[in-house]
Design a protein around this nucleic acid. Structure first.
Lengths: 190, 190
DNA sequence: TCAAAAACTTGAACTACTTCAAGAAATTCA
DNA sequence: TGAATTTCTTGAAGTAGTTCAAGTTTTTGA
C-alpha cells in the first residue's frame, strides 16, 4: 500500500515504479493539530496541502470580525491559495486545521522539481484544478439560486456525514448565513 | 504575428517552431454572433472556448425564470463547463456570446491529441485552471463580505471599461443583486 | 473530574435587499 | 427611418435574512 497521495494520483495518470519511488522519497506527511494555521492572511502561500486524513478549511475574517469559511477540504483534497502561490502576493485567506489532520505539504520548489522529473504530474494537477474550478462554479450557482434553508438541506443531502464533523457555525458561514439562522433552520423555526 | 492563443500560451511555456506550426494547423478561429449559444443547459460540454475577441458569458436561468450570469469571459480567457467536460455529465449552464465574438473552439479529441503531441501544454492548462480557481475563490470572498453597492464600486474600479461593455442587468446578476437595485445604485438612490 | 472554553439557542428589533408594475429611454435591424 | 425589441428607471410594499444580547448546552483538557 502506497502513500495515499500516490493512490490518488494513479486515479488520473499511471506512475511507474521508479516514479513512485521518487515520490515516496520526496514526500512526507506531517501532523497538523486542530486549530493550527498553515497560512495566515498577509503571508505568501508557498505550499499546496494534500489532506491525507482530517479536515482543513480556508476562511477569512470579515469586516465585522466574524470568520467566514470559503472552503473545506477533507481526505484526498488539495487546499491552498493558488493566487498567492502563483503571484507571490500576500494571501487574503487563513488556512487552518478543523480536526487534527495529516497532510502532505508540497512546497513550491519541491513541486517544481517533481513536475520537471515526472512530467505526467502536470496532467494530474491540471485535472485536479479544472475539477476544483468546476466545483467552485457549481458552488456559486447554489449560492445564487437557493435560499438559506435550501442550501442547508442540499448540503446535508450531499454530505450527510460531513455535517456532523464540523461546528455548525462554520458550516453556516460556508453556506453564507449566520450561525443564529442556522440554529433556527435546524430547529425548524423558519 | 501568431495566433492570439499561441501568444497567450507563450506567456507560460515556450513552444518551438514545429510545435507552433502544429498548433497553427490544428486550430481555427470561428465567429460567434451575439446571443448565439455554444452550450445549453442539459447538453454535454465537449469543448473549451478561447476568446480571441469579444465577450462571452456563462449563465443559468433561476427558478424564477431570470437569467443569472456566473462568469464573463473576454479576450484571452477560456470559458467552458469543466465539470460537464470531465464527467460527460449534462451541463447546468448556458454559454453565450454577449458580443459578436471570435473564439477558438477546442474540442475534447483535438485537445487530448494536442496534449499528447505537445506535453508542455499540460503545464499551460494547469496554470490557467489554477489561476481561474484562485479567481473564483476571490469572487466568493467578495460576494461574502461586501454589500451590493460595494461590489458594484469594487468591480467598476477594477474593470472600468468592462462596465460599459455589457448590459447593466447582466452585470447586476453577476454581482448577485437585481437589475432594479443596480439602477438605484447607479442613480445614487440607495 | 470539573472549570473553562467553545458551541448552540432564542426572541425581538431591524435592514438590505427583492418583487411588482408601469413607463421611459436606448438600441437594433428590415 | 421608424417599429419592434431590449434595456433602464422609479416608487411602494414586502421579506429573507441579520444583529444583538443573554442564556443554555456541550466539549475540552489539565
Amino acid at each position: 500500500m502506497h502513500h495515499e497521495l500516490i493512490e490518488h494520483i494513479q486515479k488520473f495518470v499511471s506512475l511507474d515504479d521508479s516514479e513512485i519511488e521518487m515520490m515516496e522519497s520526496t514526500l512526507q506527511k506531517s501532523n497538523i493539530k486542530k486549530k493550527t494555521h498553515v497560512l495566515q492572511e498577509g503571508q505568501i502561500c508557498n505550499s499546496m496541502y494534500f489532506i491525507v486524513k482530517g479536515c482543513m478549511r480556508q476562511y477569512i475574517i470579515n469586516p465585522k470580525g466574524t470568520e467566514q469559511t470559503l472552503q473545506f477540504g477533507v481526505e484526498n483534497w488539495w487546499i491552498t491559495d493558488y493566487l498567492s502561490y502563483h503571484n507571490h502576493s500576500p494571501s487574503h485567506f487563513y488556512i487552518q486545521a478543523v480536526e487534527n489532520s495529516e497532510v502532505i505539504a508540497l512546497d513550491k520548489n519541491t513541486l517544481e522539481s517533481l513536475l520537471v522529473q515526472i512530467p505526467k504530474l502536470e496532467k494530474y494537477f491540471r485535472v485536479v484544478a479544472q475539477k476544483a474550478f468546476g466545483a467552485a462554479q457549481m458552488r456559486i450557482k447554489f449560492l445564487f439560486t437557493m435560499s438559506a434553508e435550501e442550501r442547508y438541506n442540499h448540503f446535508k443531502n450531499q454530505q450527510p456525514d460531513f455535517v456532523q464533523r464540523v461546528p455548525q457555525y462554520m458550516l453556516a458561514s460556508y453556506l453564507d448565513f449566520s450561525a443564529e439562522f442556522m440554529s433556527k433552520i435546524r430547529a425548524g423555526k423558519v
